[in-house]
Simulated assay, not measured.
Amino acid sequence: MKVETDDGAMPAHLWLPETGRGPGILLVQEIFGVSAYIRRRAADLAALGYVVLAPEIFWRLGVSEVATGPDMLDEALAVAGRADWDLAVADATAALSALRERAEVDAGVGVVGFCFGGGLAYAVAAGSPVDALVSYYGSALPSLIEAVPAIEAPSLHHFGDADTYIPPETVEKIRVSVSTGGPVELHVHPGAGHAFDNDDFVAHHAEASAAAWSITERWLASTLPAA
């Protein structure tokens, strides 16, 4: 499907739950794009009863996803370095609006993001009302909390204590900052580094991934329940 923006149509991918209806979740990609991993997580969320929309945030660069392989991180960083952050926020916000307007969405709408998408999801929630936010190791959060200290929506954050991009002292600053807004849960997973949930990436940490996803399922069921 396509999401209309001020500059054209952005490709996006839609998953429906078995019932065909439910709360909406905007799923915001990592720097690897709408990859096989992101599509698997979208299917997981749909299986929980959510209508899931994953926009291709790098569409302006002509990139849908970065191929899995030994050079995937370097290639993805190069793509992300060319992306315009403000346009990415605007595009993700347009996707949120498009999701909210879909006939299949019969309840609230949340945002779930990973890495690059974890920060982008936070920025979207700061500018538009959402009912829930789940951010996995949001790479932009250290800078975002200076401009947007907290959001009103309930939020869940996951980090790893071995993350060299977001070290423990930075996670603690994030915890303090986001706790001034809506209800917050923040979990730090032992032994996990950045991108620990991505099972197509070398940093995947199976134990942390399973624990974090179990928490996410429980938190979503409480905060944005699906029938």
Rank of each mutant, 00 (worst) to 15 (best):
K2M: 11
A210Y: 04
A192M: 00
H158Q: 04
A227Q: 06
A140L: 13
A95F: 05
A94K: 01
V52W: 10
D84Q: 10
Y136F: 10
R175T: 07
P190A: 14
V148A: 14
A92C: 15
S143V: 00
T19R: 14
W219L: 08
D200S: 04
A67E: 15
H157G: 01
P190N: 12
R102K: 11
G191L: 04
A47R: 14
D71W: 06
W59D: 11
P23A: 08
A107W: 11
P149T: 12
G62S: 10
E4T: 13
A42G: 12
V134G: 05
R218S: 13
S222D: 14
H187M: 03
D84P: 07
A90R: 15
A94T: 01
W213F: 14
I151Y: 07
P17M: 05
P183E: 15
D163S: 09
V202Y: 13
R100Q: 13
L61M: 01
A36N: 14
V134E: 09
D199A: 02
I174N: 09
W15T: 12
V148M: 13
A12K: 07
M10I: 10
R21K: 10
V28E: 00
L120H: 04
V184Y: 06
S35T: 13
H13P: 01
A126R: 06
G69R: 08
E169H: 15
T5R: 09
V109L: 05
Y137H: 13
W15H: 12
V3S: 06
A153D: 08
R102M: 13
E217L: 03
M72V: 04
A140E: 11
E56F: 10
